[in-house]
């Protein structure tokens, strides 16, 4: 059994390295994108082997769903037959070698820093503090109570990214597909209930097992992308819904900030949540951030500000 586990892990590592090499150095753009998507799949398996199902869940939701969709769409906008960039000019060679040497040095330094980290990490401290957080799953406790400020900043960064993408201009309309697609509306009708059910399930799981707002939001965002693909969400393009859209996009951040300030009023510490309110407040923040993340990912996918 041990030998088999070793063989499995070696196969996984070899596949990962090969796909990463392919994604970086293949001369074909489409091939690079598909290799990147397959790389994410194997990466999720690696996280599973490393006993980190929370990260595997997030990796699956963000990597397989939204990143792949964004890359495929960006590829569809590029004209065919332009330079692939895999053949550097002569004067770029020293720069390339310098960059590779720098990356290798950084990787070695990171590996050394990771080796120096105390083992087995902070899991014991988190488990000891779990009773004071209001949730029974360690990762959720860290994300939404113990280190809530980091999570809040992540939401702010996503909102800033949406503003940046929208500042590029009006949303792009899709080109016509190469063939007729009669099955697509049926597929989206079949899948929409699942795209609501699964995020709700993940949110509920988050309080006591791997799950939570980020994977839930990413899955719901992928459902939103499917809505945009089948042109089933025309309301998002309307000018009179602009204010509503902006409010919904910032609702997760606003609620998070309100909870943090409320905690400051009640206990005197920023982001300190009183224990008797913690389960309700954390669930509310998770739902609001999940919905916000879903809408933000959908907003990325518009590639421009709607309603202009």
């Amino acid at each position: 059994m041990r030998l088999l586990a070793w063989g499995f892990d070696l196969l996984l590592a070899a596949g990962l390295l090969w796909l990463a090499w392919q994604a970086l150095f293949t001369p074909r753009r489409f091939s690079a994108v598909v290799n990147f998507m397959a790389f994410y799949l194997l990466m999720a398996l690696v996280w599973v082997r490393l006993d980190a199902p929370d990260i595997a869940l997030a990796e699956a939701a963000i990597g397989a769903g939204v990143t792949g969709a964004l890359l495929l769409t960006a590829l569809g906008r590029l004209p065919a037959g332009t330079s692939t960039g895999a053949d550097p000019r002569r004067w770029q060679r020293p720069l390339q070698i310098l960059a590779m040497a720098g990356a290798a040095m950084a990787a070695l330094w990171l590996a050394w820093a990771a080796y120096q980290l105390p083992r087995p990490g902070l899991a014991a401290e988190v488990t000891a503090a779990l009773d004071a957080t209001g949730v029974s799953h360690g990762v959720t406790a860290v994300l939404l109570n113990l280190r809530a400020f980091d999570t809040f900043l992540e939401i702010v960064i996503m909102l800033a990214a949406v503003v940046l993408v929208w500042s590029l201009g009006p949303p792009l309309r899709a080109f016509a597909p190469a063939t007729a697609l009669p099955g697509l509306p049926a597929l989206s009708h079949l899948l929409h209930p699942l795209f609501l059910l699964v995020p709700a399930y993940l949110l509920w799981r988050g309080t006591h097992a791997p799950g939570g707002a980020f994977p839930a939001g990413a899955v719901m965002g992928a459902g939103g992308v499917l809505l945009l693909l089948t042109d089933a969400a025309p309301w998002i393009y309307l000018r009179r819904h602009r204010l509503l859209l902006h409010l919904l996009l910032s609702s997760g951040m606003a609620l998070f900030l309100a909870v943090a300030l409320g905690g400051m009023l009640m206990t005197g510490t920023f982001f300190a949540i009183p224990l008797h309110l913690a389960p309700t407040l954390i669930m509310a923040v998770e739902v609001a951030t999940g919905l916000s993340i879903a809408l933000m990912l959908m907003a990325f996918y518009l590639l421009g500000e709607p309603g202009q």
Binding site: A44, G65, A174, A178, L184, L191, R205, P210, A222, L229
Partner: peptide, 25 residues
């Protein structure tokens, strides 16, 4: 749950490919 996410999102990736990448420029 991870397997469930993969199964759901594979459908979105395929829909994306046929509508947005496999297009007439």
């Amino acid at each position: 749950d991870v397997a469930l996410l993969f199964a759901l999102l594979a459908a979105v990736a395929m829909a994306n490919f046929v509508t947005r990448t496999w297009t007439l420029l």
